[in-house]
């Protein structure tokens, strides 16, 4: 037999993959369905907002709002029920997270595990800024900088030399 699935991977995982495909993709379904929508447009709007932040567990980076999967449908209905029961948005989200863990949050929560993740844009930007500043300082120190204060005459001459080629 060929390596359809990796040999070191137990066969049930392969079967799990198959069943996930069969159960969650094959069923004719539709992301947000008129039957499940709430009649109150404000509540429905909030439900949509919440659904867009929750991950469909069996899909790739799709929210339950976008997903056709069966479980996503159940979760959407659940969210609406929680809202009808008077939950706030956060309470409804917490209700789902309590059952499925942080994995369902498309927006990773800020906690010690994700400090590095959330800090990374700032750290990278600061590092980049330092590198750029360092580059210009080094350049200045090495004295490889062109004189900046030209007279108008000189600037015009420079324009003539430099700008015709565009770009």
């Amino acid at each position: 037999m060929m390596r359809f699935f990796r040999p070191n991977r137990p066969i049930w995982l392969a079967m799990l993959a198959v069943v996930l495909t069969l159960t969650f993709y094959a069923r004719p379904a539709f992301a947000v369905n008129p039957d499940e929508m709430l009649s109150d447009p404000v509540l429905e709007g909030r439900a949509r907002e919440i659904s867009q932040e929750l991950r469909c567990l069996v899909c790739q980076n799709q929210s339950i709002d976008d997903s056709d999967a069966d479980l996503a449908h159940d979760l959407r209905v659940l969210v609406r029920e929680r809202l009808l029961a008077g939950d706030s948005n956060q309470q409804a989200i917490d209700y789902i997270v309590a059952r499925y863990g942080d994995y369902v949050l498309l927006n990773p929560p800020l906690k010690p595990d994700t400090y590095i993740l959330w800090a990374s844009p700032f750290i990278l930007l600061i590092l980049a800024a330092l590198a750029v500043v360092g580059f210009y300082r080094r350049k200045k120190r090495d004295g490889r900088i062109a004189p900046a204060n030209l007279t108008d005459q000189e600037r015009k001459r420079l324009d003539e030399i430099l700008s015709p080629s565009g770009d």
Partner: peptide
């Protein structure tokens, strides 16, 4: 039938 208890248990694939 509704799958609600399943969700309470955190079931995502049988």
């Amino acid at each position: 039938i509704s799958g609600r208890t399943g969700i309470d248990f955190g079931v995502y694939g049988v």
